[in-house]
Design a protein around this nucleic acid. Structure first.
Length: 755
RNA sequence: GGACUCGUAGCUCAGUUGGUUAGAGCGCAUCAUUCACAUUGAUGAGGUCAGAGGUUCGACUCCUCUCGGGUCCACCA
């Protein structure tokens, strides 16, 4: 044995031996007692084309649990997989395209999908190799990709069931639309940023209204004031007339108690098409929805320009000037014109408000009305709340239980359609005969983009050409549709929207285990622990609980463990822009996987951040070396053991402490106190066993007693340390096997000490 | 605006239902030895446990308030 432990020399071959031994697979795991309850964890699927970051390394918690339960002799399954990460991946691919001077709009959706698939395939696989470097004992034979056939078929079956149960509906709804990304975002994916914008006080006949968005004024459909407001009482229910930039305007004044008398001037305009609050108000009072911004984020005045008959040339000129301009640009022009016309009474330059932005690109979100597929969530949420209340699912740390309720009790319906190609297509088809007003965008034979209404387009193009060049289809909210994974016939065009990523990943426990009839599902569902970071508690964990209960009638896991967020050494969140990202693989190469694993576990507690630093990793590398040298010392001190050895009191006391350690470590793992377990072992081995007992007994005459005590104690420590630092412990075990100091069974499948 | 969380040694953090002189790692200082390990060993310095008040025989631990970080949710045109 070398004087220092060289992780490079051992880690890869140890991993190979574990894998070849069949230990990772519950069907071939040698020590599995099939009569015992299986133990299962699903690895939260990283993006297929991702590479490892420090957050993934935190899944070491799962490896500890898996290895511990494997050593208890349970059939143990840690099922890995990868996510297609719809939006994320398409975004990466688009950047890749733009480097080649191309854009996604040059491809029909089917070709684009195939290209992205190939791209992902080429860039996938590295994440698994990296997880292996960390020593993760996943059953790779069961690895699942989010777009695998078995996943898609289960997702389709769930969707069909939900349609049948009336949980799916189509609606025109105000959504968070990002013109830049060209898709809708859920409430969770929108980031609000504080910003200072001018607040304009605009003259509206007898009133003054305050707004940061003067460009939408042309499509206001009403005014609203608080019924208690004495300033406007007399106007309520009346229609007022005044001159706007595009001619005379007539508008009704509504009374609504939600209007804040304190804000601005106490009277507001109502623009249902471009504001969530106004949309709700519009619904309440049955106001028309009148858009003025299109899906490219440009001003659309065609509603005004289409009828030029009775309009003043000045008005027409203005409308033409604004038409087709980007929102920000149009706002500038409109403010100029309003100022010139004396309509702007005051501008508050210091107005600070929160603006919704696209969490990915940072550009502004436009609230827009569009047809969407929705999941009615109330009925799904109720059983999930009940499951947590009656303890079917518990949270570590438990304070997350209340945030879980808070979210589920206020859950909103979930828009599940995404206007992107990369994902699982919603299995819906529209008959062009039944739906003459389908709006369609496709590439013709010359690869030119054509957009129009299907009843018109079919006069010029064949349906086959439209179908094969299809990019996007927008069906009216009341369109007739057919649910089917395959095309139901010649006259059908497919829905082009895909499911929100979380719609499929929310079914991960069902899809990976083969709901409803596979052996795996019968055996491993429900799983035991779901370990992830708290940031996706709602996105993902809550959805899995809802889907699990909905389809299988049981929560998919009994414990939700919310592991630490890995930060840099100063406690700051790692991010590329800050330049403080620590690459875990570099640390593994330098100090070994064990050292990194210990660093992430020791001193971390669930739900709280954990600071990672190189010096900490170095310290735990030294611990690996310490173990290695204790093992060497014991080999050198090897003695024939005699029967009826007489222990001295220091031996007995030492072994008693070992006993306490075993109980403590076991208890700590069972209670998810991994840091305590790891630090307890660290302290015992280094301080009690090596610095204290080993040093004190060097001069003892009864060497065989000392040897056997040390040998026994250190063996037990190796067993208990194995889930935390598997490589060095297994390496030592192998050396000891050569010396006849360890049994033949590999450490990974050796029995956990019972004390 | 609402909720959660943290504030303990220079740094990063433990401190399990309140109980004797508050702990670890790293860093620092001094010394030792090449002994299985210099990726070592020994010794040591360093904390009014953010502040104030309260409950208690007793508070780092429980309660209230204040100050200061962090996170999440909601969001007023």
């Amino acid at each position: 044995m070398t004087p220092t432990f060289s992780h490079q020399e051992h880690e890869d071959q140890i991993y190979k031996r574990w894998e070849e031994s069949g230990a990772f697979n519950p069907d071939t795991q040698k020590n599995a007692d099939q009569l015992k309850a299986p133990y299962t964890i699903l690895l939260p699927p990283p993006n297929a084309n991702a590479s490892l970051h420090a957050g993934h390394a935190m899944f070491v918690i799962e490896d500890i649990l898996i290895r511990y339960h494997r050593m208890l002799g349970q059939p143990t399954l840690w099922l890995p997989g990868t996510d297609h990460a719809g939006f994320e991946t398409q975004y990466v691919y688009e950047k890749h395209l733009s480097k080649q001077g191309k854009s996604r709009f040059q491809f029909d959706r089917e070709t684009l999908y195939k290209d992205i698939y190939a791209f992902v395939e080429e860039n996938s696989g590295t994440i698994f190799d990296q997880l292996k470097k960390l020593g993760f004992s996943c059953d790779w034979s069961r690895a699942t990709f989010m777009l695998d056939e078995k996943v898609v078929s289960t997702v389709y079956a769930t969707f069909a069931q939900m349609v049948k149960d009336g949980l799916i509906y189509r609606d025109n709804y105000i959504v968070n639309y990002s013109p830049k990304s060209g898709t809708t975002f859920s409430e969770l994916e929108v980031t609000y940023v504080e910003r200072q914008d001018p607040l304009y006080y605009i003259k509206y006949g007898p009133f003054t209204i305050a707004t940061v968005r003067p460009e939408t004024k042309f499509r206001d459909v009403a005014l609203a004031a608080n019924p208690e407001d004495p300033r406007y009482k007399d106007y309520i229910g009346k229609t007022i007339t005044f001159d706007g930039l595009l001619g005379p305007v007539e508008m009704q004044v509504l009374a609504d108690p939600e209007v804040d008398m304190e804000f601005g001037t106490g009277i507001m305009k109502v623009t249902p098409a471009h504001d969530a609050h106004d949309f709700a108000l519009g619904r309440k009072y049955h106001l028309p929805v009148t858009p003025i911004i299109d899906f490219q984020g440009k001003m659309d005045f065609s509603w005004y320009l289409s009828d030029t008959a009775k309009k003043d040339s000045l008005y027409l000129e203005r409308a033409q000037k604004y038409h087709g301009k980007k929102v920000a640009e149009a706002r500038k022009l409109i403010v100029e014109d309003m100022t010139a016309a004396g309509m702007i009474l005051k501008v508050d330059d210091k107005y600070v408000h929160n603006v919704a932005t696209d969490y990915k690109t940072g550009s502004d979100i436009e609230p827009m009305v569009m047809p969407n597929w929705f999941v009615a969530t109330k009925k799904l949420a109720a059983p999930a709340i009940a499951a947590a209340k009656n303890g079917d699912v518990t949270f570590v740390p438990d304070r997350f239980e209340s945030t879980f309720y808070q979210w589920l009790e206020n859950i909103r319906d979930w828009p599940i359609s995404r206007q992107i190609v990369w994902g699982i297509r919603i299995p819906i088809w529209y008959s062009v005969n039944d739906n003459p007003n389908l709006s369609v965008t496709f590439l013709d034979k010359e690869k030119q983009r054509v957009t129009g209404v299907i009843s018109e387009l079919t006069k010029t193009y064949s349906l086959t050409d439209i179908r094969s060049g299809l990019q996007a289809l927008r069906a009216p909210v009341d369109a007739q549709f057919k649910l089917s994974s395959e095309s139901p016939g010649e006259e059908y065009l497919p829905e082009t929207d895909t499911f929100d990523t979380w719609f499929s990943s929310g079914q991960w426990p069902l899809t990976t285990l083969g709901y409803p009839n596979s052996d795996d599902f019968q055996k491993f569902y429900p799983t035991q622990v779901l370990d992830t970071m708290w940031d996706i508690l709602f996105f993902w964990v809550a959805r899995m609980i809802m889907f699990g209960l909905y389809r299988a009638g049981k929560v998919p896991f009994s414990t939700v463990y919310l592991h630490s967020m890995v930060t840099d050494e100063k406690g700051a969140k790692m991010s590329k822009s800050k330049g403080n990202v620590i690459n875990p693989i570099e640390l593994v190469d330098k100090y070994g996987a064990d050292a990194l694993r210990m660093s992430l576990v020791a001193g971390s507690s669930p739900g709280n951040p954990i600071a990672l630093s190189e010096s900490k990793v170095r310290g735990y590398r030294n611990f690996s070396n310490k173990l290695w040298n204790i093992a060497r010392f014991i080999i050198l001190a090897k003695q024939e053991t005699k029967a009826n050895q007489k222990l001295q009191s220091e031996d007995e006391e030492f072994l008693k402490e070992l006993e306490t350690l075993i109980q403590g470590t076991t208890g700590n793992i069972e209670k998810y106190r991994f840091s305590d377990a790891a630090l307890g072992l660290y302290d015992f081995v280094w301080n009690r066993l090596a610095s204290d007992y080993l040093e004190k007994t060097k001069t003892r005459e009864d060497k065989e007693v000392v040897f056997s005590t040390l040998h026994q104690a250190f063996s037990q420590c190796l067993l208990m340390l194995h889930p935390f630092i598997p490589f060095v412990t297994e390496s030592i075990w192998t050396e000891w096997q050569k010396e006849g100091l360890a049994p033949d069974e590999m450490l990974i499948t050796s029995p956990w000490p019972t004390g």
